[in-house]
């Protein structure tokens, strides 16, 4: 426990001093503003496009933007921000193994579990802070321009996206116990994401797949209820736990 606390503080300090925390939060802030901004600009863009359409003989009716559009943008942009987090975090373990910075600490009795867990904790904190900052900013602007009550289950939908991020972070932890570079970790994590999307093409599996958590539009519109996401949420949480637990013994084989 002593080792965990000391190393956790070191990780937090690393995130802040290497400016990674600042950059990630900055990006989530941008994404948070961008989502309502894109929704707001949609009618303007359509108007411009409409002129071309009229020339072609097609008429475009007046488009009414609501909170639903703003939140649809949020759902569309969050995975991009998550990818940014994954790219920035992919080397968090492997670079330490490769550089040998852990050697002095491990020989002083720091356990490898403490290393795995404190880095996981810092990644979770960063992702959570970013995701909820983004949510808060989008919520604020959507309330400002439209009415958040139009969309349903907002915080639950955000929770689902957050949970999906937790799963991806667990993938980083798992692949880091096997890989020797950040690029390999990125590749493995990306492969998991692609595999899930491919499997999602079969409608039968869809309900159980973690990728379902990213599909929040039916939730906003009230076509699906939070209960319809339970299976995917439980599976995501369970897989995350398994990946992390599996990473612990495997990390012991990592040469440092």
């Amino acid at each position: 426990m002593k080792g965990f606390t000391a190393f956790f503080i070191k990780e937090l300090r690393e995130m802040i001093r290497t400016k990674r925390m600042m950059i990630i939060l900055g990006i989530f802030l941008v994404v948070g503003i961008l989502s309502p901004a894109m929704a707001k600009l949609t009618p303007e863009l359509m108007k411009m496009a409409a002129e071309d359409f009229t020339e072609m003989g097609v008429t475009v009716g007046e488009i009414k933007v609501t909170a639903l559009d703003s939140w649809a943008q949020f759902t569309k942009n969050m995975p991009t921000a998550l990818i940014v987090v994954i790219i920035m975090m992919s080397g968090i373990y492997t670079s330490e193994y490769a550089r040998g910075t852990l050697v002095p600490l491990i020989t002083k009795g720091l356990s490898r579990q403490a290393v795995v867990l404190s880095k996981l904790a810092v990644m979770l904190i960063t992702w959570s802070a970013g995701a909820w900052l983004c949510y808060g900013v989008t919520y604020f602007y959507t309330e400002w321009y439209w009415d958040n009550n139009t969309a349903k289950a907002l915080s639950f939908a955000a929770f689902c996206i957050w949970l999906f991020g937790v799963l991806m972070i667990s993938c980083i932890v798992f692949f880091s116990s096997l890989a020797s570079s950040g690029a390999q970790v990125m590749l493995g994590t990306g492969a998991v994401y692609i595999a899930m999307t491919m499997a999602g093409l079969y409608s039968k599996a869809k309900e159980y797949l973690p990728t379902r958590l990213l599909d929040s539009n039916p939730l906003y519109r009230g076509e699906l209820l939070p209960g319809d996401y339970t299976k995917a949420a439980v599976i995501s949480a369970a897989v995350s736990a398994v990946l992390i637990l599996a990473a612990m013994p495997i990390t012991k084989r990592q040469m440092i």
Partner: peptide, 23 residues
């Protein structure tokens, strides 16, 4: 009407860009 969106967006993006170039 767009200003509340545009001002922070421009500030955030340019400070990110500015810091990157500085680095």
């Amino acid at each position: 009407e767009y200003l509340p969106l545009l001002i922070p967006l421009v500030i955030a993006q340019f400070s990110l860009l500015g810091y990157t170039i500085f680095h």
